[in-house]
Amino acid sequence: MKKILFATTALVMTAGAAAAADVAVRGDARMGVLYDGNEWGFTSRARVQFNLSGETDGGLTFGGSFRVNDEGGANTGDGRRLASEGSRGTVFIAGPFGRLAMGAPAGAAEAAVGDLHEVGLTGLGFYNEVNYLTGDGDGIRGPWNPTVLYSYTFGDVTFYASASDGRDRGGRVENPALSTGSEDYGVGLAWAAGDFKIAAGFESSQVTNLVGDPAVLTTYGRQEQWVLGGDATFGDFTLRAIYANGDRSVAAGTFDYEEYGISGSATFDLITVTAFARETRQDTATGRNTNTYYGLGGRYDLGGGAALVGGIGYRDLADGTDDTYGDFGVTFRF
């Protein structure tokens, strides 16, 4: 009898805990064809997203999010699985003090400014994205460097601040020969009122070596950049512009870096059209390297969470690459 009473009490307590929180599940999938500039191929993917949320007796909200293929990143807070797809495993708590997130959120500059409009079924290389130095946008050392992001909104203005702990993979030294981290920090400020937004961010990053190898520390110096952006919405049309300027490091030294771009999105009943143009410039010891990207995409809403999506892109790179690529298929949201 005591065992029955104990089991019943445990069941009631568990039900009460579940009622105090919320677990939302959603998913997305795609299927279609992809042209990489040389040949055609098939592309498909299915994912499930878990969003967890709750509230304390004092009114603080908390939660987390991860995808089913990010379960490792959700557990360690590094979000390093499927990094090419911008994976995230993030936990947060929020209240009158603002919002504090840890794991793999965006860095402060990216959270404030954002990216240009995306095109295509697969993102087509995501050349619409700004080369941020910190947070999940880090393209130099990979997104496994744990990040903390703080944000606070007052009126129409939101302030952001982010930093990393300077160690890879949650501080675990799995392979001393590869044990490098990244000491990152950033700040951002965004003003949004009605149909207009202006944002700015600053970020700084430097590779650190956890086993004290001076050779790693001299490979990349401290990198810094400013990022500016603005949005304007006119009915069903949104225009976005971004500019970044700073210093980037390579093995040969630290050089000036600059990028700028513009994009737009327009909706006509069931059709949405997006386009972007972006250019990056990196000075080097031998001259200036310039990369140029263009993209044009469309989406036709079929209803019920399904849509026809396609895009075409062009890139002209400093290494001599000059090609056109594209994709087309069907997306599903559940």
Score class of each variant (00 low, 15 high):
308 L>W: 15
14 T>Q: 10
23 V>P: 06
84 S>Q: 12
85 E>G: 02
109 A>I: 09
111 A>E: 02
268 F>V: 10
16 G>Y: 14
173 V>I: 15
74 A>T: 09
297 G>M: 09
148 V>N: 05
163 A>E: 01
75 N>T: 15
146 P>Q: 15
233 T>P: 05
240 R>C: 06
215 A>N: 09
47 R>W: 01
283 D>E: 15
113 V>E: 00
250 V>C: 00
56 T>E: 05
283 D>V: 14
200 A>F: 04
233 T>W: 11
6 F>H: 11
190 A>E: 09
175 N>C: 06
232 A>E: 07
104 A>F: 01
247 D>N: 14
270 L>M: 03
302 L>Q: 01
258 E>N: 06
141 R>V: 08
92 F>V: 07
228 L>I: 00
234 F>S: 10
292 T>V: 12
236 D>F: 06
180 T>W: 04
304 G>Q: 11
271 I>F: 12
133 L>D: 01
11 L>P: 02
170 G>V: 06
216 V>N: 15
210 L>R: 11
209 N>W: 08
125 G>S: 07
46 A>H: 03
195 D>T: 15
33 V>R: 12
9 T>Q: 10
228 L>S: 00
49 Q>L: 15
276 F>I: 06
58 G>T: 14
9 T>S: 13
102 M>A: 13
327 D>N: 11
215 A>K: 10
109 A>N: 05
125 G>A: 10
133 L>T: 07
247 D>H: 10
291 N>L: 05
185 Y>N: 08
322 D>S: 05
329 G>N: 07
177 A>P: 07
260 Y>I: 04
32 G>F: 13
192 A>F: 02
284 T>S: 11
296 L>T: 09
112 A>P: 07
320 G>I: 15
126 F>L: 09
200 A>G: 06
215 A>P: 07
293 Y>P: 00
221 G>D: 12
63 G>E: 02
219 T>P: 12
255 F>A: 01
190 A>P: 10
144 W>Y: 14
132 Y>L: 02
287 G>H: 11
176 P>R: 05
283 D>H: 12
285 A>S: 14
153 T>G: 14
279 E>N: 09
178 L>R: 05
198 I>W: 08
62 F>W: 08
232 A>T: 14
188 G>C: 05
27 G>R: 09
83 A>F: 12
109 A>F: 01
48 V>G: 11
212 G>Q: 15
105 P>V: 07
328 F>Q: 11
205 S>R: 15
330 V>K: 08
249 S>E: 08
152 Y>V: 09
9 T>Y: 00
186 G>C: 00
274 T>E: 05
307 A>T: 11
19 A>G: 00
66 F>A: 13
298 G>A: 08
122 T>S: 03
23 V>S: 06
225 Q>A: 13
22 D>E: 14
209 N>Q: 05
317 L>P: 02
297 G>V: 11
268 F>T: 02
96 P>V: 01
101 A>L: 09
145 N>V: 15
34 L>F: 08
187 V>E: 03
223 Q>R: 14
316 D>E: 07
216 V>M: 13
90 T>Q: 08
85 E>N: 08
65 S>M: 15
239 L>S: 11
315 R>F: 03
